[in-house]
């Protein structure tokens, strides 16, 4: 392990840990601008909100053992995921086993959230949890499929136009699956403010809400970085990038796509569970069909 690898690992970990609330602050300003509002006074506002929430008294209507256990486990899992990802980015190493390991850790964090939501017997929370479970069952299959498809596209690539097209299709589908996984509009059905008044997270307040908000933002950012890890890996192989540059490239690209997602979510309305399932099904089916079609039928 050379010096540049050693430097890039802590840089990446720090960026993963500190950037998500900052990006959320930028997102709030961008959204406010789109909506002709002023928005929060500073891009650090989300950090201030989280710190304020964490410093508030703890009031729990649910059994505290379950809440603290699941929340701390999911947060720990996400932070260890940032360390793992940072390590592999810096090593410029990405094989199928690593991709699968990242996905397993990510899906485990998702499952812990579901457990966290379901501990509340509040009816809003119950309805919200069932909604997100429905979306997750479908989307996580897509997320895994497209991550693996992207990895396969890279591994079989001989740098031909067909290979680049296959990679582009897989990456686009992966970016869509990541967007849905981030639980943004139109798929934020578990919260759905007007119908469910915060839904699955209605019972969270104070420190619990603070930690949940942070871990949710961290998860969003990790998700946004996944397609970018593939891109950085391809680029670093092509351009012989050093680990620090590759790491920075991942974070710059992840931040950009995070903002792109923010803009998209500001321009659309909320879906319905049945509609969302139909749309996601259709998009994923088409993506897989197109990828297979190109792979089988295009023989240059």
């Amino acid at each position: 392990m050379n010096l540049s690898t050693l430097i890039s690992i802590p840089i990446s970990i720090l960026l993963y840990i500190f950037l998500p609330p900052l990006l959320d602050g930028v997102e709030r300003k961008v959204k406010a601008d789109i909506q002709s509002r002023i928005g929060p006074p500073t891009i650090l506002q989300t950090w201030y909100d989280i710190l304020k929430l964490i410093s508030k008294e703890v009031i729990l209507s649910m059994n505290p053992r379950y809440v603290v256990l699941t929340l701390s486990l999911s947060l720990t899992m996400l932070i260890s995921l940032t360390v793992t990802i940072s390590y592999f980015i810096s090593l410029l190493n990405l094989n199928m086993y690593i991709v699968i390991m990242i996905l397993i850790l990510l899906l485990a964090a998702h499952s812990l959230y579901l457990i966290l939501y379901i501990f509340s017997s509040n009816p809003f929370s119950i309805v919200g949890t069932f909604r997100i479970a429905t979306i997750d069952i479908l989307n996580e299959a897509g997320l895994v499929a497209f991550a693996i498809l992207t990895a396969v596209s890279i591994s079989i690539s001989r740098a031909s136009p067909k290979d680049y097209l296959l990679l582009t299709i897989a990456l686009t589908a992966l970016a869509i699956a990541v967007y849905v996984s981030q639980r943004r509009l139109p798929y934020d059905l578990h919260e759905a403010e007007p119908e469910l008044a915060s839904g699955a997270i209605i019972e969270f307040s104070g420190a619990v809400l603070g930690f949940y908000t942070y871990s949710h933002l961290l998860e969003r950012y990790i998700l946004a970085s996944i397609p970018m890890i593939f891109i950085a890996y391809v680029m670093s192989n092509m351009l012989r990038l050093n680990p620090v540059t590759a790491t920075l490239m991942v974070h710059v690209l992840a931040s950009l796509i995070y903002m792109l997602y923010a803009v998209i979510s500001a321009l659309i309305g909320r879906s319905r569970v049945n509609l969302a399932v139909k749309t996601i099904n259709l998009i994923y089916f088409l993506a897989i069909a197109i990828w297979l079609g190109v792979y089988i039928l295009w023989n240059p």
């Binding site: 909506q35 002709s36 007007p194």
Partner: peptide, 16 residues
């Protein structure tokens, strides 16, 4: 109505 449908950008602009 836009707010109820989760389209807050519509809500803000209409109220503007």
């Amino acid at each position: 109505a836009f707010h109820l449908l989760g389209y807050d950008t519509g809500f803000m602009h209409i109220w503007r």
